[in-house]
Design a protein around this nucleic acid. Structure first.
Lengths: 230, 230
DNA sequence: GGCTTATTGTGTAAAAATTACACCAGTATA
DNA sequence: TATACTGGTGTAATTTTTACACAATAAGCC
């Protein structure tokens, strides 16, 4: 990354924990590093923040560079600033997480700083570069806590999905079995799932109804539970 | 604007939103600035992070410098990084909040960078220096959300307190009236309040029982509800 | 001492939310 | 048409949350 440490009193970066869901498994987006330090290691996608961009802006830029995505709802979750977290000197990093739909159509673009980008299951992660394992764990815990009071998981699913898929996703994130009937009752009671006149195709068993997420209704319901202004 | 921007590519600071409770009112600790920019304005206590200290460490140092306090449980809640948040150049700030007991014995020490330090009610805050009004609001919302799922308010009360005081504190933070009986039932059901054999003194009405917070039991109960390691 | 005043301290019933639990229906395919 | 597999559904018990009112107590004052 930065070769000329002398030049800077300090620097900061953004790191992204980007969750996706595929084949019943929760995954995160990783890159394989091209340069020292930690050459060839897996790492969270991240980059230094430019001096003329805000950090939200930087987060968007970086995610775009790495995935081609725009307008992804990203949320800051923690800032890591241990003195020795980066071997090249003092670099504080602001960590963001995002939930995105894994789109098999679109290939991952590694960008200029990585050998490749890949989706990796959250369940058997190897040790990551820098303190990225810690960052990932913190982000995953944040996601869990968030999901248990706000239904945000739909962002990970394809546009049309079945209730079973939704439940599997919840189970993957919360890491526990849920009761099918209670889960459905609860999800439908929120009122932001729209039942479609369509069913699954190409399955070798009874096809399930497809549902769609209704963003309008969702906002109405959950905006009121947000923070209050003073 | 931007007098010595040349010297630094970037810098970062800590700002602290320190809550206290006094006379039935929720307050925060502010300083009156001694220097430009924003000379004479009220601001959150904060300082630049040194290059050889971690940010948690820096937060502790700064709080200590400003209040003389040690071992206060501080929690990071957000990092602010708008490009123009600081007129002197690009300074990203990591915001922490803390809840402390206002101790009338101990005088506030302003330190070398402030004219004075003071407790100010959260209800009629003037406009603060920099983006500190926004930082405060974000921190206050964080405190509210946190309090509604974790009983952390005891940190603001004197060692011995009455249930009415505890309720007033909740009402001040959540900004709504609570039902006395339900509130007491709930608080006592947690099991971390220890009833003392003592009562209020010097009150011109029926004295209330005093309670103490039992830190041991609290930890037992709430550690299990924290994030899970992977 | 007894009256006034202000606050403390207590219980119950109704409503709402959460949990536990099992079987028939539908579709593909063999 | 039988088999294998997943989809879809309801109810009762339990727990949690809410709503609500009055007697007990202590100080101050007359």
């Amino acid at each position: 990354m930065k070769e000329q440490l002398i030049k800077f009193e300090s620097e900061f970066s953004i790191d992204c924990v980007i969750f996706g869901f595929e084949a019943g498994e929760l995954k995160i987006l990783l890159i394989e590093r091209k340069n020292e330090p930690f050459m060839d290691w897996l790492a969270l996608p991240g980059d230094l923040v430019e001096n003329d961009e805000g950090i939200e802006e930087a987060a968007e830029r970086i995610l775009h560079q790495l995935t081609g995505l725009h307008d992804v709802h990203m949320e800051q979750f923690h800032t890591f600033g241990a003195v020795n977290r980066h071997p090249r000197g003092r670099i504080i990093t602001v960590a963001y997480y995002a939930l995105i739909r894994i789109d098999s159509q679109r290939e991952l673009k590694a960008g200029q700083f990585a050998k490749r980008a890949l989706w990796h299951s959250v369940n058997d992660l190897p040790k990551l570069a820098f303190d990225h394992t810690e960052i990932f764990k913190t982000g995953f815990n944040k996601l869990r806590r968030r999901l248990s009071y706000q239904p945000i998981a739909y962002e990970l699913l394809p546009e049309k999905f079945t209730l079973t898929q939704l439940q599997q996703l919840y189970e993957a994130i919360l890491n526990k079995k849920l009761d099918k009937r209670n889960f459905r009752k609860k999800m439908l009671s929120y009122g932001f799932l729209k039942e479609l006149d369509e069913k699954q195709k190409n399955v070798s068993f009874r096809a399930a109804k497809l549902y769609k997420f209704d963003r309008r209704k969702y906002s109405k319901i959950f905006q009121s539970e947000m923070g209050v202004d003073i």
